[in-house]
Amino acid sequence: MTNWEADEARWSAWLVEAQAGNAGSYEQLLAELVPAIRAYLFSRFGSFEAIDDCVQECLLAIHQARHTYDARRPFRPWMFAIVRNRTIDVLRKVRPAPELPGADATTHDWNSEIDGRRLLEQLSQGLRETLLLTKLMGLSTAECAARQGISESLVKVRVHRGIRQLKSLWEAESS
């Protein structure tokens, strides 16, 4: 049995026990899911400010949805469907920081941040850069607009379109 299969079997068994009220199994399950979810998000977005919020929202959602898990079905599709949905929700709600995150923010080469973020790589350059600046780096709409040389309205449109495309790409990747 590979590690992947072993994790799958163990997580599934723990969640079934948790459905019956076994707190020990549930604690072990959640403790193992935290790094797994973080690694999953990191592989798609790289490191971003809201990653810890995403992980916690995912744990909460898994807690609320635990009664919907069917042991006859694989665990990962169930869990990652929740993770994808909650992450998109968190990204939509991310409030930009009031000021630039660092003194060198305006001169930073933001495109170099894309490396390793395989979901973002699939977006057009404009959408990618806007999402990166506003949702992952925390710049305000005005700062992002100034940095990109576009209007604030266009920034908002790009954020909306970018998240929608990100969601579609992510769903397509998982299916």
Partner: peptide, 23 residues
């Protein structure tokens, strides 16, 4: 958010755990 926050959340969720009927 830190490792401590994760652990606090896990403890809260475990404390909240009740047996559930699978749908």
């Amino acid at each position: 958010m830190t490792q401590r926050d994760d652990n606090a959340l896990i403890s809260t969720l475990v404390d909240d755990l009740q047996p559930v009927a699978v749908r």
